[in-house]
Design a protein around this nucleic acid. Sequence first.
DNA 1: ACCTGAACACCGTTCAAGT
DNA 2: ACCTGAACACCGTTCAAGT
Lengths: 232, 232
Amino acid sequence: MSARTRRTPLSRERVLAAAVELADAEGVAAVTMRRLASAVGVEAMSLYHHVPGKDALLDGLVDAVVDEATAAIRELEEGEGPRDWQQTVRRRFLTARSVMMRHPWAPGLIGTRTTIPPSVYAHYENLLATLVEAGFSYHLAHRALHTFGSMPLGFVQELFSPTATGGSTDVELTEAELMQMAEALPHVTAMVASEVHDNGDDMLGWCDGQAEFEFTLDLLLDGFARQLSARR
Amino acid sequence: MSARTRRTPLSRERVLAAAVELADAEGVAAVTMRRLASAVGVEAMSLYHHVPGKDALLDGLVDAVVDEATAAIRELEEGEGPRDWQQTVRRRFLTARSVMMRHPWAPGLIGTRTTIPPSVYAHYENLLATLVEAGFSYHLAHRALHTFGSMPLGFVQELFSPTATGGSTDVELTEAELMQMAEALPHVTAMVASEVHDNGDDMLGWCDGQAEFEFTLDLLLDGFARQLSARR
DNA sequence: ACCTGAACACCGTTCAAGT
DNA sequence: ACCTGAACACCGTTCAAGT
């Protein structure tokens, strides 16, 4: 009767795919049972036939992006020669990060979930496998799991993004406010001035999230490499 | 008229304090305008006289715990002799973590806030001051800010807490399920077995969040110490 | 100035009813 | 088996009204 073409009878996969699409477009807050239902051309209560409830839907949502990362990593590594463990780990986390950047709502959602999604166990297993094969003890590998644990999740929030300062129009500060801030936070002010100068006055791009991420990742990788050789 | 003693006419501070108390007791989800109002002995709409709205209330909630951390650090450091930058930074983050542990809902809430709370600028300023005085360039100090940025936030979620496995009663896995898991995740299984053995069969406490946190913190501190001496 | 009641537009979820 | 309508118990927020 309706103009909406829909002959496939709906399924858990279609519901989750629509939920990801909705979250990408309007954020997680927008994915309510009612709105998701109407997006998929159905009444809210019909969703309960494919998903036990809102909470399970959110769990499914994080599983969906973790699976996307899993697939991206598999594609990256297939038919590839052997690499050392640092390169392997490095590229995996960079790939995971790129997937998270496609779904900026995901890290926040993962952080609020109380149970650890089953889909990440596969990542633990893979990471453990490469570390142990590289000579890590299970104890050191366990520490690495904790240390790297929040790597793909963090770093989505920029430190000083222009939009983070406040509302829509009040980004511009008065000279008096700037003076006041410079007085209260002299080192912060000096740092911003120094970095902006080096970057050629490009105020918007002075925090390069990708570069910062790689720096931290390499710092950790170097640290574990040192631990490894010290214990050998 | 009511038995609830309440002659002080309510204030932003009292509202926020009650909100923190409510979040500690029942989680952030429980702090709704209506429930918070009744907890403070008032009707929901009265709250709008002291707080602009729900969003501002949540912002106030994170400011409250950040301020608590600020106070704890100030108390820690006052009347204390000079220390090297690594000890100073280390103790600050450990203190911040101990505050976060008192309010387990806080890191998750901070993660979802879109704007960076003004109260953390003071922490940036303090951290920058000690790093720059220790010889960090503003560029390296900037990287440190990003690297350490998520330290006090992360690590609240335990990797394999008993409650994280599922509901209330289904923590126990059947032998068949364990066998299946051991087959699918051999390294994870071996790691757990190895660590549990070392810890004397204490399954519950085999992930020591505090120890893992300190390990990562020291790894990062060592990394920056090396960066610092290499560039000198 | 501070608090309130009623109302509005939304939630997640249950339940009996349709096909 | 799958979808629906009405209903319930909750949300945040506005607005006119009380003191």
